[in-house]
């Protein structure tokens, strides 16, 4: 298989399979999670200021008091790479073209130099949080294989995308094919790993906040 055949495969059958598995897994897990149900709480709800699902969504999006100083890399690095990913994924012209092709939605793109900068910052932040995870004994102890695996499948699409655009290491066609392939791997594993937080993050925060609010605890 030469690079053109590989590119044709990842743009055609490969993408078809990856999006198929992604949809299947996502719908499956969402159905399963939301159909679990919870036992009815028979206690009378308490009312405390600042205790609600929405408050928890907002509160947990910010570092708790003192934590920013104790673990700056987790918070700042984490924020930077998530925002960077959003910029790279949603504001790069070829990506918007893909979204428009799939969903019919489109919006203006950022100049590619700005996206380049966001990519470099994202990569650097991701490397930093990984190094921090390995260096801090507690974080290392808490880390499982899945943590490193999900880091890698998130990192690779950004890296290969950047290398394709910048013509690094391999010819553009090969790198573009590898970039799309790495995104397909990400799509396939996303529903079945902790990367599923893409869908569950805010809903679970709301749920926890609401459950605690019932008990009158603003967390």
């Amino acid at each position: 298989m030469n690079e053109v055949e590989l590119l044709n495969w990842v743009r055609g059958p490969g993408l078809n399979i990856a999006i198929g598995i992604f949809l299947l897994g996502t719908i499956w897990r969402l159905f399963e999670i939301y159909s679990l149900g919870r036992k009815k709480d028979l206690s009378a709800p308490r009312h405390t200021a600042g205790a609600s699902g929405w408050n928890t969504i907002a509160r947990r999006s910010l570092a708790p008091p003192g934590m920013l100083k104790r673990s700056p890399i987790s918070y700042i690095g984490g924020y930077v790479f998530h925002v960077g990913l959003a910029i790279v994924v949603f504001l790069f012209a070829p990506h918007i073209e893909l979204i428009e092709n799939l969903f019919g939605l489109s919006w203006p793109a950022l100049p590619s130099q700005v996206v380049d900068l966001a990519t470099v910052v994202t990569l650097a932040a991701m490397v930093l949080v990984l190094v921090d995870r390995i260096n801090k004994p507690v974080k290392r102890y808490l880390s499982t294989v899945e943590d490193y695996f999900t880091w890698a499948v998130t990192f690779l699409p950004v890296l290969t995308g950047y290398m394709a655009v910048k013509h690094l290491l391999l010819p553009y066609t090969t790198m573009l094919a590898l970039h799309i392939l790495s995104v397909e791997i990400l799509l396939v594993v996303l529903p079945f790993t902790k990367l599923f937080h893409v869908f569950t993050l805010f809903m679970s925060r709301w749920y926890n906040g609401q459950a605690n609010a019932h008990k009158g605890v603003p967390v």
Partner: peptide
């Protein structure tokens, strides 16, 4: 466009239906 799928995504609909079916099935099992 080069970044768009080369072929139509033929599996999307059946994958969605299958995903929903498995999800509902799992909810009954649970």
């Amino acid at each position: 466009a080069l970044s768009a799928p080369a072929d139509p995504l033929t599996l999307a609909t059946s994958a969605t239906v299958a995903g929903a079916a498995i999800g509902v099935g799992m909810s009954f099992v649970n």
